[in-house]
Design a protein around this nucleic acid. Sequence first.
DNA 1: CCGGATTGTGGCACCGGTTCCACAGTGCTC
DNA 2: GAGCACTGTGGAACCGGTGCCACAATCCGG
Lengths: 354, 354
Amino acid sequence: MTAISDVARLAGVSKSTASRALTGRGYVSEETRRRVVEAAAEIGYIASPNAASLVTGRTKNVGVVIPFINRWFFGEVLEGIERTLLASGYDLTLYNLALSGPERDRVFDFFLARKRVDAVIAVGVDLSDAEAELVERRGKPIIALGGTAGSAPRLAIDDRGAARLATEHLIDLGHTRIAHLAGAGAGSAARSVQAFRRAGFLDAMREAGLDPVGGEDGIVEAEMTLPGGYDAGLQLLGHPATRPTAIFAASDEIAFGVMRAAERLGLAVPGTLSVIGFDGHEHAELFGLTTIEQLPGAQGRFAVDAVLRLLGEPTGDDDPLTPDGLPDFDRPLDTRLVVRGSTTAPSGRVLAAR
Amino acid sequence: MTAISDVARLAGVSKSTASRALTGRGYVSEETRRRVVEAAAEIGYIASPNAASLVTGRTKNVGVVIPFINRWFFGEVLEGIERTLLASGYDLTLYNLALSGPERDRVFDFFLARKRVDAVIAVGVDLSDAEAELVERRGKPIIALGGTAGSAPRLAIDDRGAARLATEHLIDLGHTRIAHLAGAGAGSAARSVQAFRRAGFLDAMREAGLDPVGGEDGIVEAEMTLPGGYDAGLQLLGHPATRPTAIFAASDEIAFGVMRAAERLGLAVPGTLSVIGFDGHEHAELFGLTTIEQLPGAQGRFAVDAVLRLLGEPTGDDDPLTPDGLPDFDRPLDTRLVVRGSTTAPSGRVLAAR
DNA sequence: CCGGATTGTGGCACCGGTTCCACAGTGCTC
DNA sequence: GAGCACTGTGGAACCGGTGCCACAATCCGG
């Protein structure tokens, strides 16, 4: 266990000079710095971040709260965050936060409130005001990515507008019997991504004067996974009489499940059924899925940039997004409609049947 | 910023007594403990892990090195690790380690060598002896899960034996024209999972006196992703003359890609082509994929248990795996063959064509 | 040539805990 | 009743750095 005092002794300087030489803060002559650095290398000195954090109050560590790891969107975000933090010399502490329950409270009380992280990035979760305040009161900024965290700055796409766009794409193609496979929870949690997408769907339908097809109140909920989409798809497509000619799925994973269900039922996509997804999943191209593309990896990087700026870290980015150097939290993140083979105009046969 | 001295003052005791009362170490009367705990709660005291780590040398933090996040197997492992660590009060610091390159060196030199983590779990990577030693020399145990880390203890399935079993399943069904879609790198990195699976395939083929079909030397390599399997599948299945009747894919994701390629080419699975995968992917059931199932989530928990034992942490597990309380690193982790609809006996037509 | 600014260095307190040691009181054994 | 183990508590050193302050030397402007 080599300490900085060992380095100092070997280099023939005081602890403070050694510290200045190694951190680059304060005045040190070039000659002295060289000697200290050499001494450190010679004995394999590695600074203790703990000791440094204790006095500086900075940990060079960012906490990431994320509800799922094994869903494509979240995995991409996490990868983007990880790479960017690493490049800036920050560690990433992962909290795979369940949506609710005692485990969740524990994460806040026991983990996040402690002084281990400098900031928190909350991905795709809705933190209550109390939860957010618990962290912020301790001087740690929070950035919400695709969710909310009390009144903390929020980076997100325009889910509602994009969902509306997706639905309008189907309407423009001539579909009138359109269903929405909403993400589970779209009805309950008012501010969730699922709820926004559902609202956007309803916006477009209402404006076009169309009634949603399927389900009890016109919308079927599905777990945001491929099997979830499959099950909901079987349910929705099971009865020929009430079958829609087009489906807007709340995520690409749901859409893949629907396509699988359609295949199982012998329904041709897009011949008999058009499907549009949401996310821009990496498999969307291979399966020819029309979708609303967003870029989760880039969003992760973006969130890290924002956090580092809040921490006053130089980001080396000489083109700040706004004059004050902070990103414009009001501007939604980029999305675009990518039209592929899974959507087309409704077939004459089906139109006639209607 | 409340410190333990504030708690001590409020409770009318000394710092040391407050510390003992809160950590539960050493003698404190029940009455005093109660007063201290109350005082702590009253002022919202939260201990600084930094300060504690500085003196105890323990960080209650485990580093996880993992090459991919967005591949099913790794995502599952990560989730399993995360939950288990959290339940034991440990933090998880994530290092999304690329397979090689300067970033990789940086992770070792800059991050892992520092004193931030108590131990390292290396998932699906092959750490060189030098890399492993760099960490172990600092007194931090390493556990390798499904990879290697110098001479560190290793938890893994029997990839070679399981691959052999998968291949034998195809042979038992009567297939003779069998191809293997190996994971990219199976040829180069000798100790990789891909290489073991490839070897197991060759074991079975050799024993049955069969020559592998397809590719230059009888094996086609694929990225271990769905698109990777799709591309390799198109290539392998493109020429009717050399087309195999069965494929053993090195991962389920490759297998899904192959099935998609077969669909594109109009080849029925399993009618014309049998496919067996490897991993037990959560979508395998939905797609009727025969596979070698392993349980990555459980493996992650298992690795954490092993690490906590190495750290001398009581795990509350009163049924240790071996008498010394450490898992049996020589016994391979569980796998089993799960037969579903994607494999069957070769059709007469194809047999005749041969 | 003098005085203030700048550069370079060492000493020391301090961050917030843990732990060792000393000491006092209590209960028990012989 | 002496001796000892055990319980309970406070004082102080210490973990490994950082940063403030004092001090010396050099530089530069007027």
